[in-house]
Each structure stands twice: as structure tokens, then as C-alpha cells.
């Protein structure tokens, strides 16, 4: 199998790292060759963060090339646009319908681009918009937004559901396992293009 590429973007503190961990653990368990690269700049929170995951029979580069991501999984709208050039022409965009303003916008120096979701949908045929925060809240824990998004991704990629659930059980603290699995299942149901 030729390598598949999953590009995850988000904002520091959103749980992208745990999402990457769940996904790659599943892929390694499934017997794939897997590589993952993460950049989380300095300790401070609130910066842009990305995780790149590649898997297949044999993977060389840990970095995804521009225009080659099969999926761009964006935990925030602006971070979807920022990395959209990584998406393959027929790639799938999964975008969290969440607006987190960077500092320059918060203090009124720059503007948060309007209509991001509409414009993304217009340009990218395969776009799935997810209100992961809303769903996570319904599940009882806002921080499980990452598992909602992992659920959508897993369904889209056709990964075995049981494999994911068992890994979530392993890596999430005991107390939060049920909420996270519920969040994952809700995401799974949305993974249709």
C-alpha cells in the first residue's frame, strides 16, 4: 500500500497530541509502518501546532509534502486555511467549526477572516464540518473534542472501530474513558462524505 498522509493542525492545548497518539497506536497495532512528526514550538500555549502522520507498507519521510495529504484534520478554522496547501487536490478536509482568535485579533489589530467554512466548502469538494465542541459538551466533557474529531477521521479512513475504542481505553485516564468513547462514537457517525 502506498503511504497515506494525515495532516493535523490546531492550537496548542486542544488535545492534538493525544489524538495523534491514539491514531498512531492504532496504525502500529494494525501492522503498518508509521511515522509521525510533531512541532510544538515553545512551552507557551496558544501557538499553532501541527502533527503529521504517514502510514503504509514502507514510509520514509516523516514529513508530508504540500498537496499530498489525504486528509487535513483541522481542530480550528483558521488553522484549516493556514495548512490547506498540504491537502491533495481530491483530499478530504475535516474541520472543527471552532473559532479561536490569535492574539493579534483579540486585541483588535487584525481581523479573523469571515466565512471560512463557506469558502472552504466552496473550494474543497470533500469537506466535513464538525461542531466538535458542541458534541463534546453534550458528551459531558468539552476536552473530548479531540476524540470527536478522531471518530470522524477513523470512519473516513475506514479503520476498524474496535481497534480505536480499545486504544482509547488504554491511553485515556480511567475517569474519562466513557466520555471519550462516547465522543468518538458521535464523531464516527459523522464520518460520511
Amino acid at each position: 500500500m502506498a503511504a497515506k498522509n494525515i495532516f493535523i493542525s490546531g492550537v496548542g492545548g486542544q488535545g492534538t497530541i493525544l489524538a495523534g497518539k491514539v491514531i498512531t497506536t492504532v496504525l502500529v497495532n494494525l501492522g503498518y509502518d508509521v511515522k509521525m512528526s510533531e512541532v510544538h514550538e515553545m512551552a507557551q500555549r496558544g501557538g499553532s501546532v501541527i502533527t503529521q502522520i504517514r502510514y503504509g507498507d514502507k514510509v520514509y519521510s516523516p514529513l508530508i509534502e504540500k498537496g499530498k495529504a489525504d486528509v487535513l484534520l483541522a481542530f480550528e478554522k483558521l488553522e484549516a486555511v493556514r495548512y490547506v496547501e498540504y491537502l491533495a487536490p481530491k483530499g478530504i478536509l475535516i474541520v472543527n467549526d471552532l473559532e479561536m482568535s490569535p492574539a493579534s485579533v483579540l486585541i483588535g489589530k487584525e481581523e479573523y477572516p469571515a466565512d471560512i467554512v463557506e469558502r472552504l466548502k466552496e473550494k474543497i469538494e470533500n469537506t466535513i464540518v464538525v461542531d466538535a465542541v458542541g458534541i463534546a459538551k453534550e458528551c459531558g466533557e468539552i476536552r473530548s473534542q479531540n476524540m470527536v474529531l478522531v471518530g470522524v477521521l477513523a470512519k473516513v479512513m475506514g479503520w476498524p472501530k474496535d481497534a480505536l475504542i480499545s486504544v482509547i481505553r488504554d491511553v485515556v485516564p480511567e475517569k474519562y474513558v466513557d466520555v471519550n468513547i462516547m465522543a468518538f462514537e458521535r464523531g464516527w457517525d459523522m464520518g460520511v462524505i
Binding site: R45, G47, G67, R82, V84, P102, S104, P113, L120, K123
Partner: peptide, 30 residues
């Protein structure tokens, strides 16, 4: 990066931002 190699040694260039926003607010660490 691999795309630098592809461009410089193979002459293949990938550039597609889907015609979306040219300028975006940056999100540096604070």
C-alpha cells in the same frame, strides 16, 4: 523538506492553496 528536493532535483512544483485567503493572521506563541 521532500518538496524542496522534488522541486530542485526533479523540477516538480506543488502549489495549491485552493485560491483561499492570501493573508492570514499569524498565531505565534505568547
Amino acid at each position: 523538506t521532500p518538496e524542496i528536493l522534488r522541486e530542485k532535483l526533479k523540477g516538480e512544483k506543488q502549489n495549491n492553496n485552493f485560491g483561499l485567503f492570501a493573508q492570514l493572521p499569524s498565531r505565534p506563541p505568547v
